[in-house]
Design a protein around this nucleic acid. Structure first.
Lengths: 191, 191
DNA sequence: CAACTTTCTTAACCTACATTAAGTGCCAAA
DNA sequence: TTTGGCACTTAATGTAGGTTAAGAAAGTTG
């Protein structure tokens, strides 16, 4: 349970009292693999922090094709930012991939915490900034790199995920079909 | 000069004293078209807010191809978030496309303001959240939509830019070559 | 205004990746 | 033990979009 406090401590330092208050606002739950934490079309009420296990967010376009936006394993946050912030129905699904322990922080509690502990507003500002930078880089990579180069980057950035995530999901994350990914992988191995 | 205060007022409300303090921390400059505000390889010192004119950020990959990350016209913020936050050399260029009046906010002043006016930390948190949501959507669009659909979305989202931005830059923004864009456009007109 | 540069277009040809389809191997439920 | 589902592979064929090259428009500068 200290994982989330450690995560915060990397960016801002809370007093014991503040830690207590923060802990009183969150909720920890266990989920089996394949549980859907949030459905497209619904309004997202929580931010999720992964204590253990593996979670992903993805959308499904008209052609019934899934596209993975994000993987989150131990120590990562995940959610449907659009829906959470706008309180409108989003188009992301959030699904547990491996049995997981997840911390839930409701939108109301999160906003209360901004008032009660301004340092947490700083924490989430910085978290969001880092996420934005990562998304900008991924966007530029999608515009300028080949599938092979995007896969290389993925391997370097998320070495632990490669063993854990089914390769069709990695294919989806980097933006190719599972068939092409398979072919590409064997082509890369041959070198 | 009230444009930037209006921009802030849409999200948080400042007292007159706070407005004064904020204004004392920024600097307004005029730039001619084609001026480079920030070079790839350098450390970014400022956030930029566009009062008038038009500014873009882009990178250049190994093959000497430009990719536009962002356009900013009146009332928009622009910068190299990666370089600004990490204080390391980035790989974005920021260039004035039409003669512009730009507000500069240095990183130091921005961070001072977070302490002096916590509401501004809230303002930038929310600004960053909105930007993140927009980037997530653009990323998913790049993964799942055709060039034609991406162009449609661009037209709906930035109707005023279409007249102002050379079409090769729009092509770059949506991720196709100028030649293909030209072909696609005439194909779309024929319908 | 001419001379130059940059943007846009057109067209022939090329390739990275998608689609469709069939087949393999694995493992979990019945 | 079978059966069915799911992840992965292979291969033939299709296509969105890239590349190259050349000329036409349009904008910029002296």
């Amino acid at each position: 349970m200290t994982l989330i406090l450690d995560n915060i401590a990397k960016i801002v330092s809370l007093t014991e009292a503040e830690k207590e208050l923060f802990l009183s606002k969150i909720e920890t739950k266990q989920y089996k693999a394949k549980t859907i934490l949030h459905n497209a079309g619904e309004i997202c009420k929580h931010s999720y922090f992964v204590n253990s296990g593996l979670v992903r967010s993805f959308n499904i376009n008209d052609n019934i094709v899934e596209h993975v936006l994000h993987f989150a394993c131990e120590g990562w946050w995940i959610g449907d930012m659009y829906s959470l912030l706008s309180q409108k129905p989003g188009n992301l699904f959030i699904e547990v991939m491996e049995d997981a322990e997840v911390v839930l922080l409701s939108k109301e509690n999160q906003e209360q915490l901004y008032f009660e502990i301004p340092k947490l507003e700083r924490f989430f500002r910085i978290l969001t900034e880092k996420s934005l930078v990562a998304h900008q880089e991924r966007l530029m990579d999608n515009l300028s790199l080949s599938a092979e180069e995007r896969f290389d980057k993925f391997c370097k950035r998320y070495p632990t995920l490669i063993q854990r995530v089914p390769q069709k999901q990695i294919a989806s994350y980097i933006g190719v079909t599972p068939e092409f990914f398979s072919k590409m992988k064997s082509r890369m191995l041959r070198k």
